[in-house]
Amino acid sequence: MAGIAELGVGIGWRPEIDLTVERLPGVDFVEVVAENLHAGHLPESVVLLRERGIPVLPHAVSLSLGGAEPVDLGRVEHLGEVAEAVGAPMVSDHVCFVRAGGLDSGHLMPVPRTRDALDVLVANVKLAQRNLPVPLALENVAALLEWPDGELSEGEFLAELVERTDCWLLVDVANLYANARNIGTDPERFLDEIPLERLAYVHVAGGVDHGDVYHDTHAHAVLPEVLGVLGELCSRVTPPGVLLERDDNYPSDAEIASELAAIRAVVTGRQG
């Protein structure tokens, strides 16, 4: 498979900040939450960004590819339709599950890092890939708890997933930081283990400490430590794209612009 296109620095497009996203300097690409869009009537703002030539990448949150249940092809089809409607070069979802036993967790849950879970994930990803018009990238999630009996490290788990499915990776450095804080993942080892040549792009987001737990809220400022993990990643590879995710408690345009500038500084600084 050919390499991924250069994306640059981007931001998650959200309805509340559509005009901000349009006005911000230095937005090279955007991501939309696929479940919130209908291919038939895209938001005016998204159409306008497309007309300007800004790549729009659909990001899904509900495929539950790490779930034991068979993939819901209706959701895959919707993602594909959105991808075609916005002319996306790639789509993404997470290495996680959100549905099990008839319940919906309402949030991205980590999968056990076992052979069983990997085999199921691989089967699900392959089925999704066959039903998608563009390549699929998969993202590491932030976990607040650790499954018992893990047989692989998170990096090894993702590396094998890529090897067996030929998927791309969407590395969320904030999730990596969260896992380092909350369940003791070693970010450097993670970065050593994953196939960086399959890196599609990177997510950066803010969060907050509650006692000794770090919550990846997407509603607070990006911590310098998270930019540190981004720097670590950039010291190994030049990421094709880096995207800021902000989902709530949106700060002023100036503050968002400065977060994007800080991200760009890390990326270009390392490029020297």
Partner: peptide
């Protein structure tokens, strides 16, 4: 077979987290 084993584990976890089910073994 892997699906069945995984389904049981995942259901047990969500039941504990969302519906006051018993804590699954091995979790903190």
């Amino acid at each position: 077979a892997a699906r069945e084993r995984l389904a049981e584990k995942q259901a047990e976890l969500l039941h504990a987290l969302l519906a006051n089910g018993p804590a699954p073994a091995g979790f903190d």
